[in-house]
Design a protein around this nucleic acid. Structure first.
Length: 771
DNA sequence: CAGTGAGCGAGCTTCCGCTTGACTT
């Protein structure tokens, strides 16, 4: 019989700790929270001072029963959940549900999983901190009230199944506002001038020097004039300034920085990174992956030191402890680091290996020496344009330090100036001018968010937690507020001027600007919902809302404020706003009158419906029913024009007849298509549904028919409705819109009519595999 | 894979933050 039961949150952690504690200690895990407010109902009795009604999660019943059994068999219960607000609450729920009062029970915490830390915790037990638990209850109840009162407003005013909340609605707002910023951005252009000089150094060795003019020109005339001056100018080195500088490594990874770097360096999505990290954690390769702390245990720092010295030598090592700066950090865990630094590689998939490598290098680098860099700036004067100056920037690494293993990436994809070794020049030296190049540049519009850069922004605002970053990103996409995709760049003609010899050559170059990969863009729905929420619930939508309620949670945790009081003063203001919004008689969210049809005079609207944005002609109360057409891809509710709306309403359009049968073109849920003889034929991306004619329609029809023909393996004269087809997932039987699986032991091409009949009798695809 | 959107109005949807499985196409 185990005398001591230790309960932690994660099963992987339980395994590790059990090893450290040895005999007499049993370690089990709660798998996170075991109890929560009712899943379906509000679960809060607003009239009884916000009394919460907690229920054991049905999915956790089994685990709770197992815990109960062990509690009954143990003498002492140690509640060792995480050392943060949520962890304290989990400990409290465990104590309540498992009725540990009957036993000796203690609350213990440690924020690193080392033998010392755990034994130390056992020596310093304490009571559950009820004030901290109350702060968690306030957090939980506030989120529930906001989420479960706001969402139904959206169901009524916009469309069912939508959602709103303290975190997700602000995340969507960030994306909506970014898009607005980009739309309003006024691009300005300028000419950037660069020069290539040559010469010979003291030893007669030829060199080349690239330098940039310190001033940009606003227009092409001024640029031309300048190049004219350069034609007959002499160029002299006026200054050579060298300055030593140091670069220090970045701290080890937290969840958010790991997601950012994995996105920039490896191209992983946020959820992909977390899945891989979970694998690495479960295999014992890395420490816990949901953390906001940059703290490393002394043991880890010592291990990193060992590894750095043996791999690179003493001079490469410089240990440090970093301070966590991010807002609202609770630091229940260490930073994300390898469990064993001497494991250079691990077994696993190639992506697991790549992520492990990133984590190991980042952690190692954080304990390595600063890089010593010598920065050099060479200034070059222009004889005929004395108020201008060329400059060359050079960087030489004197000592690599941490750069030997790791260099952090940055979000702005701005091309960095060429930092190279510069030739050893002295002031006064004359240079030969080779070419001078002027290139038209455009000021950079703001970047849209990637998943990872959105997480970074949320973290800066103190919104969301490491365990929720990935789910937030999924939720706002699942709800249709935000879409991830590539942003197509626009082609621009860019003017260039080149001075070579005594000739100035002007040219125009094509350049694609503004292409962005895997960026987040708001949908019409996201924009409309954000606008609505901003109008009626400005406090919740405020970027500072979370930070301000966090301050109150802190006061609750300090015992200076009753959680019910805090919730009450919030709810007294919030709830009436909900009632007002519910009763709004105004037209539905996002609706806009585009104008009147010049032909009929009927009003034309753009609205959001159950299936997304659409245009409508006519009033719904009128005698004549209105007609509808969905907004095709690539059109925005807020920019669509009356003319465009009228063109959508022109569908379905007859393009002609084949025999007596009409051929029409229409736009459906999956894009434009041709409809002929009760069959559908998708248009190609290059086809324009507004102008497509009969010849092209015929082409599409026959192409599709050929494709279908090729997929037919067998048909039967007995019943033309039955076909054996080759599909995306292999051969199958199709009969009256139902699909049927072909048994493994039969070859599809050898099936007889009787075989097929038998398979169909057995029922459609629903493999009832017995275990 | 495919043409909806108003209107009758049952019964459903929804939050954030802890943690991992799993009945399948």
């Amino acid at each position: 019989m185990a005398e001591n039961l230790v309960i932690v949150e994660s099963p992987a952690k339980a395994k590790t700790i059990e090893k450290f504690l040895g005999k007499g200690f049993h370690v089990l895990s709660s798998f996170g929270h075991i109890r929560d407010l009712s899943k379906k109902k509000l679960g809060i009795d607003v009239d009884k001072n916000y009394l919460p009604n907690y229920e054991v999660d049905p999915a956790k019943k089994k685990q709770v029963a197992a815990l109960q059994k062990m509690v009954n068999e143990s003498d002492v219960v140690w509640l060792a959940t995480d050392e943060d607000r949520e962890g304290e609450a989990i400990a409290w729920h465990l104590a309540e549900v498992l009725n540990v009062k009957k036993k000796k029970s203690y609350r213990i915490t440690f924020n690193e999983i080392t033998k010392d830390a755990i034994q130390n915790a056992i020596k310093n037990p304490r009571e559950i901190n009820i004030a901290l638990v109350d702060a968690q209850q306030a957090r939980r109840i506030l989120d529930r009230l906001v989420g479960f009162e706001l969402s139904p407003v959206l169901w009524k005013k916009v469309k069912p199944k939508l959602s709103a909340g303290r975190v997700q609605s602000v995340a969507v707002r960030l994306i909506v506002e970014k898009e607005k910023e980009i739309k309003e951005f006024q691009s300005s252009s300028y000419f950037r001038v660069t020069a290539v000089f040559s010469g010979k150094d003291k030893n007669g060795k030829p060199f080349e020097l690239k330098a940039e003019l310190q001033k940009n020109f606003q227009d092409i005339e001024k640029t031309r004039k300048f190049l004219e001056l350069c034609k007959d100018s002499s160029f002299t080195v006026t200054d050579v300034i060298t300055k030593p500088s140091v670069k220090s490594p970045a701290p080890p990874f937290t969840t958010s920085t790991l997601q950012q770097e994995a996105s920039r360096k490896l191209g992983f999505s946020v959820s992909q990174t977390m899945l891989l990290a979970q694998k690495l954690y479960e295999s014992g390769h890395i420490t816990y992956m949901r953390t906001d702390s940059v703290h490393l245990s002394n043991m880890a720092i010592a291990a990193a030191k060992n590894e750095i010295i043996s791999e690179f030598g003493e001079e490469y090592c410089k240990t440090r402890q970093f301070q966590t700066k991010s807002k609202g950090a609770q630091e229940a865990h260490e930073a994300i680091r390898p469990t064993y630094f001497d494991r250079k590689t691990i077994t696993g998939t190639s992506n697991e290996k790549r992520l492990y490598d990133l984590i190991r290098k980042r952690t190692m680098a954080s304990q390595m020496a600063d890089a010593q860099i010598l920065k050099t700036v060479i200034s070059v004067s222009i004889s005929k344009s004395p108020d201008q100056m060329f400059q060359a920037h050079g960087e030489t690494i004197q000592f690599e330090g941490f750069l030997k293993v790791y260099r952090e990436s940055s979000d702005d994809e701005q091309e960095s100036p060429e930092n190279m070794m510069l030739p050893p020049l002295k002031p006064g030296q004359e240079l030969n001018r080779e070419t001078i190049n002027a290139l038209k540049k455009f000021s950079q519009q703001p970047f849209r968010f990637t998943e990872a850069s959105l997480v970074k922004k949320l973290e800066e605002l103190g919104i969301g937690r490491p365990s929720t970053y990935a789910p937030i990103i999924s939720t706002i996409q699942d709800r249709g507020y935000v879409e991830k995709g590539d942003i197509q760049g626009v082609e621009r003609l860019v003017e260039t001027l080149v001075l070579k010899g005594s000739q100035i050559k002007e040219d125009k170059k094509k350049e694609t600007i503004g292409f962005e990969k895997a960026k987040l863009k708001p949908t019409d729905m996201g924009k409309a919902v954000t606008e609505f929420l901003l109008a009626h619930f400005p406090e919740i939508m405020n970027y500072q809302f979370t930070a301000s309620v966090e301050k109150e949670f802190d006061r609750i945790a300090e015992g200076k404020l009753m959680w019910q009081k805090m919730i009450d003063s919030f709810y007294k203001k919030f709830h009436p706003q909900v009632s007002v919004a519910m009763e709004l008689k105004e037209k539905r969210v996002g609706e806009r009158l585009l104008g009147n049809d010049p032909q009929s005079g009927l009003p034309v609207y753009v609205k959001i419906g159950r299936y997304g944005p659409f245009v409508q002609i006519g009033e719904s109360q009128a005698d004549e029913k209105p007609r509808f057409a969905s907004l095709p891809k690539g059109f925005d509710m807020d920019s669509v024009t009356l003319e465009q709306a009228m063109s959508f309403l022109a569908f379905p359009r007859e393009v002609g007849k084949i025999g007596n049968e009409p051929v029409t073109v229409n736009i459906g849920r999956f894009g434009p298509y041709i409809y002929f003889e009760k069959k559908y034929f998708s248009l190609a991306k290059t086809d324009n549904p507004l102008t497509i004619g009969l010849p092209r329609a015929k082409e599409l029809i026959s192409e599709k028919r050929v494709r279908d023909e090729q997929n037919i393996i067998l048909t039967f004269t007995e019943d033309p409705e039955i076909k054996v087809l080759n599909g995306k997932y292999g051969p199958y039987i199709s009969y009256l819109k139902g699909n049927y699986k072909i048994p493994r032991d039969k070859k599809p091409e050898n099936l007889t009519y009787a075989d097929v009949k038998e398979i169909i009798e057995k029922g459609p695809v629903k493999s009832k595999r017995k275990k």
